[in-house]
């Protein structure tokens, strides 16, 4: 029963705790090279977002999400819905599992409202924000970098905007998705973030890959 679930805000109190993103260590150790002149491939971390895993029946979750967040579940496998300002998204992961990503400070409130709306429905909501991070890849050579890294077909004509898959990336796995024309997003496990970051720097070297300056890896 959902009323017996103990829900608490898992985010660090940023006033007293200096949280570090999964890539904070990598940025220090491997550096943050500046993107080449043309900026053909740029990598950046969007840290401290709220990641929620929703599990349960599509109909009940879809209804609750529309009510609480204003966007519904994607109707098709391997696809993604993004809200009007691009800050909130829901992605299909499996027939009974979706990944919801929202701005970090909305996570707890959203989870609470979803639970209230879902009542005793047979669903699970798990806050996995601390376990993974989102790496953004932009630039005209972005899909070139991906082609060297994953077995999935990342040709922009095949991997269209709104598609998202869980697949193999180098020797690990990632959630790979394309929320709009210009961006690719990789959701990586915290413990593999350093590996993926260094892989990207290496694979993107020929394209002059660099790190976006705004990458924020420590909370203030």
């Amino acid at each position: 029963m959902s009323n017996s679930v103990h829900v608490y805000d898992a985010r660090a109190d940023h006033a007293t705790v200096n949280a570090q993103s999964p890539l904070a260590y990598s940025f220090q150790r491997s550096g943050m090279p500046a993107p080449g002149e043309e900026g053909r491939a740029v990598v950046g971390e969007r840290a401290f977002l709220g990641h929620l895993i929703l599990r349960g029946g599509a109909i009940v979750l879809d209804e609750a999400l529309r009510e609480v967040l204003g966007i519904g579940l994607p109707g098709r496998p391997n696809s993604l819905t993004v809200d009007a300002d691009g800050q909130r998204s829901v992605q299909w992961l499996s027939p009974d599992e979706w990944l919801l990503i929202v701005p970090g400070d909305e996570t707890f409130g959203l989870e609470t409202r979803l639970r209230a709306h879902l009542g005793g429905s047979h669903v699970a909501i798990v806050d996995v924000s601390a376990g993974q991070t989102l790496i953004e890849l932009t630039g005209e050579a972005a899909h070139g970098v991906l082609m060297k890294s994953t077995v999935y077909d990342v040709d922009p004509h095949a991997f269209t905007v709104g598609k998202g898959v869980t697949t193999i990336f180098a020797k690990t796995s990632v959630i790979l998705r394309r929320p709009d024309e210009s961006r690719w997003e990789l959701i990586v496990r915290r413990s593999f973030a350093d590996y993926v970051y260094r892989w990207l720097l290496d694979a993107g070297e020929e394209y002059g890959i660099g790190v976006a300056r705004e990458s924020r890896h420590e909370s203030q």
Binding site: S94, V151, T167
Partner: peptide, 11 residues
Amino acid sequence: PYCEELREEEE
């Protein structure tokens, strides 16, 4: 049959 597409054997 769940992803409704052809995927690499490695997966």
